[in-house]
């Protein structure tokens, strides 16, 4: 399949290994990425708290650019960031609700010759994996099952709430997809208190203690549940859970050492890519347990 691909900002900035690992994994899943390199930041909810219309117009611009690719044959728009998914869905909900409002936004876009038509399909890589590629297909592609790897899911608020806006329901349990993917890849899903909670990142500059307390508590819960690592579809969560983990550890007064993987990295490992190809060496918390696991399995396969 071919997707109009919005990588987001942080995945090309402080978590460049996310964008890199997505690019490495996509061909193995038969996904052709057409990168929207002229598109802009989704606003991460912060621009919307400054001006809703500004956030809506910026995202309408990204959608319009994606729709140009969809006209040229892409199946849908894909993102790799929970926050992009949530912030863009929020804007899309308003844009799709009213033709009058959409006309006002499109008037602003018209200088650039762009127009957003309602009803774009924009899915996070996690949703694409389960809904477009399918778990059965994914299973057939696994070369190195994550046997005995204990993985805790960490979704990020923006991809699980509010459920009605994100079309999460019993028929489409998008808030359970990470667990389903971990299982399909052969790993063990760890149930712990923090999986659907907030990483604390949005208030890191406003109330640092509370922000790090959130990250530290969830990581600690995962340690207590004996997880080997966490996996997240959100690079902003990754910043607070991995980059800030030494500070979070100080805040909660306990050792954490919990590796946090980006979703394409976990998929890539199971599809047979090496930790290095997936950029795991760039993490602040060294994913030793994960790498030990993958090398042990590689060792097993080659017979020593």
């Amino acid at each position: 399949m071919k997707v109009a691909y919005w990588p987001g900002c942080v995945s090309r900035g402080f978590t460049a290994e996310l964008h890199g690992s997505m690019a490495a994994v996509a061909p193995m899943l038969d996904i052709e990425l057409v990168e929207l390199d002229r598109a802009n930041c989704c606003g991460a909810g912060v621009i919307a708290e400054h001006s809703q219309e500004l956030a809506d117009t910026l995202n309408a611009r990204t959608f319009a650019l994606a729709q140009q690719e969809i006209t040229k044959g892409a199946d849908l728009m894909m993102n790799i960031c929970s926050t992009c998914q949530g912030a863009q869905s929020e804007c899309q909900q308003r844009l799709d609700a009213s033709a009058e409002y959409r006309a006002q936004v499109n008037e602003t876009l018209s200088d650039e010759g762009l127009e957003y038509q309602d009803g774009i399909i924009n899915k996070n890589f996690l949703w694409v994996l389960v809904e477009e590629i399918g778990l059965d297909k994914l299973k057939t592609l696994v070369k190195q099952p994550l046997t005995d790897l204990r993985v805790g899911p960490f979704y990020g608020c923006y991809i699980v709430r509010p459920t009605d806006r994100l079309d999460i329901n019993r028929a489409q349990p998008r808030d359970e997809y990470l667990g389903q993917v971990i299982e399909t890849l052969g790993g063990t899903v760890i149930d712990y208190a923090g999986s659907h909670k907030c990483c604390g990142f949005p208030i890191i500059t406003m109330n640092k203690e509370a922000s790090l307390e959130q990250a530290g508590r969830h990581l600690g819960d995962a340690v207590d549940a004996e997880a080997d690592c966490l996996v997240t579809p959100c690079p902003l969560c990754h910043l607070n859970l991995d980059l800030q983990q030494p500070m979070a550890s100080k805040q909660v007064g306990r050792e954490l050492n919990m590796p946090v993987l980006h979703l394409p990295q976990l998929v890539g490992l199971a599809l047979g890519l090496s930790p290095k190809e997936l950029g795991l060496q760039h993490h602040v918390v060294k994913p030793t347990s994960v790498i030990d696991w993958s090398q042990a399995v590689v060792g097993g396969v080659s017979g020593w």
Partner: peptide, 14 residues
């Protein structure tokens, strides 16, 4: 602990 202490987690909306 006022308006800027909210993390946008959407829990209250839900």
């Amino acid at each position: 602990h006022g308006i800027y202490d909210c993390t946008h987690c959407f829990k209250c909306i839900e």
